[in-house]
Design a protein around this nucleic acid. Structure first.
Lengths: 204, 204, 204, 204
DNA sequence: AATGAATGAGGTTTCATTCAT
DNA sequence: AATGAATGAAACCTCATTCAT
């Protein structure tokens, strides 16, 4: 058994690529830096990937794929919808805003135009799933008589907005001096608003 | 009087640059394409800007500067906070998600790491102002006894999250096949959730 | 009569060109800087000269032409050769090493390969004249029984060598920190060596 | 073992660069021509040097460094100063005016303003050493009672002047039609003048 | 499997020169 | 006469990619 299997090397390359692409974006990242980070030659990258693009695609789709299962609640039987929502938002925000993952929305947003199929993949794999999960959760609450909502699909976007905001804030603005965001506290408050809104009185 | 004033040319270049940078990001955009779009030679770009970077910086900061005044409500006297919030969110979401502006968050998110001072400028000029306006609006509502909120600053982020979500959805996902988002409807519903939440009952 | 005649302007351009070409050499000098120095536009230079090359050629040949008459002793009748040599060397070294002129050998040396006809012109107009004058002076001394010299033409080169050395030292090495050269003292000593050499005794 | 070692390639590039820079000067030389001369691509030059400037600097300083040891007499014990001077001048003139070296003073003179640190390096490494050696030689002669000289340091410049003259003549004027200079004969005569001057009689 | 060497394609930038006004 | 605007040609440099070893 070889000490370093091809799969190992592939993973180490992807880990390095993650750093470089996250730091610079696709176009500005240099394969030389990726190779240096791994400690191999530039040419050796081509033993694992066909091209820079292939590497980028593999990185993004694998990160998406590995992120998804941890994101969604597996099943929520007949628990109260508010508690489910609270659990979901806190988990999702913590995961998505974590240093390992937060680079992903940034890359998708930044490179989506140049890599439409990645944006599509992210949309179909991540966005639709997350939004769908939230939507189902809302529908579940409505069915239980706990939630009222004219358009659960649209409402899901408001819920997701806060989560994405946290990820981008961490990754885009904190590095340039923005006030650090306490993710747990943000999650807590976001849930509060999502569930009860700002108003003290329900609408007439 | 010259047929084409320098300011004219500068503006036409910036308009073309907006298209190209928005389409490809900074690194992948080609000055040749910008020039072609304006109908001038590459060298002529250098009559208006010192470098590609200077052009990019000018574009971003000018768009930010011109966007801001339209974004914030000038004054809200003693109107009810819910109505103010509704007006603000609808206006801001429509502006920020409009085709002319939505490219901006995308660029900031995508290139923020390579142009930290632009991210900082956007943060200080746009984010802080918008978040501050929302926060003051919430505080205003609390003072009037209409809102209850444990942390207005954090709550402002949830409000902003939905707005940014709309802009990114339009710019990143719709072009790759995502279901189009009706901005007015989204704004209406976002306000609804921000004000009243999902729950039919207020918390115990 | 116009305030600024074409000839005036031509002269002012040449004066500016002298500075720029002297400072940077032909290739690295920028017409924009020449124009700025004169206080006119780049395009206006083309009213006086056909091209950068034409300007350079005019500059060099005019400086050569104006330098030459001041360099050579008009006539030396039957004066003693040593005194003539002393007068010539002191005058020539002072002139050639003067700030106004010293740039010329430097330009010729530096750009001679790219402008062979200027090198040729300098050679034919300046070098040959100066060397010829020295040679004739030596022949004059031999005829008077004052000098002994196996090859006056070659000897003239040794005399000229010291003069050129002074000009280059001033212009090339002093600006980078070389010990300043006292031209008068150098001339005095150069003449001494040329006339009497270093040895205390004449050769056997 | 590779057929072509990096050092080989570097040397071959420097050899080509020598030709091109010697022919055109720094600014007018084209890396494409250097590459063509070596038989490699332009990009391959950057495997050996970081930039055109780095290449130029390396070329000049390496040539200076390799030239110096051959130039100076190692030791002159108690030999008669005139013989030492003869040996030194003949050797130095032949070396400096040789086709391999003569391009160097021309480049230094031509590009010294644009590359002050190279002029400084040449001054400190070549000029000061050569002038110092000559000066010590003169002092040696004075100590032995063979030479008389009011200022050995200045006298050294006269000696050096003839040597530099020969190099420049060869490199600047001969290519444009000047009468070829017989270096050996010039050296012989230069020594003659340096030692005994032109005058048949010593000064009163 | 791994790499050092090499390259082609393409990018930004500079600048002498032209031309309509 | 004079210029601001414009450009074409070229230069330097970078980097993803290939290939012989």
């Amino acid at each position: 058994m070889p000490r370093v299997t091809p799969a190992d090397r592939r993973d180490r390359i992807l880990a390095a690529a993650r750093e470089e692409f996250a730091e610079r974006g696709f176009a500005a990242a240099r394969l030389e830096d990726v190779a240096k980070r791994v400690g191999i030659s530039r040419a050796a990258l081509y033993l694992a990937f066909d091209s820079k693009e292939a590497m980028f695609r593999a990185l993004v789709s694998e990160v998406i794929t590995e992120m998804m299962p941890k994101l969604l609640p597996s099943d929520y039987g007949s628990l109260p919808a508010p508690a489910l929502m609270r659990a979901f938002v806190k988990n999702a925000m913590k995961r998505i805003a974590s240093p390992d993952m937060a680079f992903l929305p940034r890359l998708i947003v930044g490179e989506g135009r140049n890599f439409p199929e990645l944006a599509r993949f992210y949309h179909e794999t991540a966005m639709i799933c997350v939004l769908g999960a939230i939507e189902r959760l809302i529908v579940h609450g409505i069915a239980r008589g706990e939630f009222a909502c004219p358009d659960p699909k649209i409402a899901a976007r408001s819920v997701a907005g806060g989560i994405i905001f946290a990820a981008l804030w961490r990754n885009v603005f904190e590095p340039v001096g923005a006030e650090p965001l306490d993710i747990d506290w943000m999650a807590e408050n976001h849930v509060g608003m999502v569930l009860y809104g700002l108003c003290k009185e329900l609408p007439a």
